[in-house]
Design a protein around this nucleic acid. Structure first.
Length: 226
DNA sequence: CGTGTTTGACCCGCGC
DNA sequence: GCGCGGGTCAAACACG
């Protein structure tokens, strides 16, 4: 059952800036221009939900949509932001903390994000959903999820599974269900924001050409690095 | 034995 | 007020 989900997946970003750039250029224009940076960040979050490498061939994000209480909008292969351009990722501490942090580490991206976020805080819970083509339902995003419920929904023959981040103090939840129209697709909905980094975050390092020393370029370095 | 899953019951919001 | 449907709880169970 949890054969796939039990194995932490490490998200390594050997060239974080390049990755982020290519992602955003490809996906950032689904909504209004002011929300493009938010879209980029969120897409990173979505990428963080990518399954294990061995299953990558079965993984394909077909739709990415925001469901921030204002109704979901989606277009195949394109981002669609909430009408008000609501930032889903305030400071890289989003649902896909690890990968997002890597992207946010890039100065240009951080600046863009700050520029496009006129609303500092948002009382309602942030929700982000995306549809993926995957044979597995548990997309391992590096976080530790604990299943707390399963429910059959009205308009779908497939049950919906409920997961909660098992990290203490973290209130992020996610729902996972198979697409009723096409069972080969999995609809994943994240709700909330992680208040911690991914347990399996890889702290990618850059090597100084002169000294040959490595520098941690990721988020918070692990204790062993000190 | 600790941790995570299963699953029926319960709660609550919403539409009629 | 009532029924329905979605979301959550929690005891039992499985597994490493």
């Amino acid at each position: 059952m949890a054969a796939v989900g039990a194995r932490p997946v490490l998200y390594h970003h050997p060239a974080p800036a390049g990755d982020a750039a290519s992602m955003s250029s490809y996906f950032s224009h689904g909504g209004s221009s002011t929300s493009s940076s938010a879209s980029a960040s969120s897409f990173s979050a979505a990428l963080a939900a990518a399954p294990a490498p061995t299953l990558a061939e079965h993984f394909d994000i077909s739709e990415f949509l925001f469901d921030d209480g204002a109704g979901a909008v989606a277009a195949p292969g394109v981002f669609a932001a909430a009408p008000d351009g609501a930032p889903v990722v305030p400071d890289g501490a989003a649902v896909g903390g690890g990968a997002v942090s890597a992207a946010a580490a890039h100065p240009a991206r951080s600046a863009a994000a700050a520029e496009a976020v006129p609303v500092p805080e948002r009382p309602r819970t942030e929700r982000i959903a995306f549809r993926t083509r995957s044979e597995i339902e548990i997309l391992d995003d590096g976080y530790k999820w604990r299943k707390y419920g399963k429910k059959s929904v009205k308009n779908s023959p497939n049950p919906r599974n409920y997961y909660r981040c098992s990290t203490e103090g973290c209130n992020v939840k996610k729902r996972v269900e198979r697409d009723k129209d096409d069972p080969s697709y999995v609809v994943t909905t994240y709700e909330g924001t992680h208040n911690h980094v991914s347990p399996s975050t890889v702290y990618y390092a850059s090597q100084d050409a002169a000294s040959g020393r490595f520098f941690v370029a990721g988020t918070h370095p692990p204790a062993s690095f000190n």
